[in-house]
């Protein structure tokens, strides 16, 4: 039969991933805190993944923690990041034959991600996004970015500045000129 000849290559892969996540590695924040994380989950970070691959898994497991030197990787941010990767490591992978990535961009955040990212402390929120960007965890950067965009959706410029603590460096004239250029957006259809 046609399908018997066809080797299924992913099977082992998934088991290996699950097995590997039982292996714990240590991650060290820029503030010095050391936290454990499953290996497969940690490898959602391309930064960590590259390090593990160049050092070898054994070295990472048995030696000192991986140091995440960027100042955005605070203790609190790293704890959030580990929580996120431990939840998402077994997500279905993006299929590059399709527009999965584009579809996901336009999708609303899952309920879990919404609750995860809805933190009151804006400094922590920005730390998580910046740290995820530094650690190269694209999925988490996306969660943070979508959250911010959903908060400022439909808001006025002034409201956005107040919310995100942004300095307005336009003169009133410059602002007027942009408004005029984008006048069509305010027309009722």
């Amino acid at each position: 039969m046609a399908d018997n000849a066809d080797h299924i290559d992913g099977d082992d892969n998934e088991d290996v991933r699950a097995q590997q996540n039982l292996i714990k590695i240590k991650l060290k924040s820029s503030e010095g805190g050391i936290y454990e994380c499953g290996l497969t989950a940690a490898k959602m970070s391309d930064l960590v993944k590259n390090m593990v691959e160049s050092l070898g898994t054994d070295a990472v497991v048995t030696t000192e923690p991986i140091i995440l030197g960027n100042e955005a990787v605070t203790d609190a941010a790293l704890k959030k990041i580990i929580e996120w990767v431990e939840f998402h490591w077994d997500d279905p992978p993006v299929d590059h034959d399709f527009e999965d990535e584009k579809d996901r961009r336009n999708e609303e955040l899952s309920h879990w991600d919404k609750q995860f990212i809805d933190v009151d402390d804006q400094a922590l929120l920005f730390d998580v996004i910046a740290a995820a960007n530094y650690m190269d965890i694209k999925g988490l950067v996306e969660v943070g970015a979508k959250h911010i965009c959903s908060k400022i959706r439909g808001k006025s410029c002034q409201e956005v500045r107040e919310m995100l603590k942004i300095t307005n460096d336009f003169t009133a004239e410059e602002e007027d000129a942009i408004h005029k250029e984008n006048a069509w957006i305010y027309a009722k259809d």
Binding site: I152, C157, V160
Partner: peptide, 8 residues
């Protein structure tokens, strides 16, 4: 377009 003039 609405938020273009938040900042430079």
């Amino acid at each position: 377009f609405r938020l273009e003039c938040v900042s430079k």
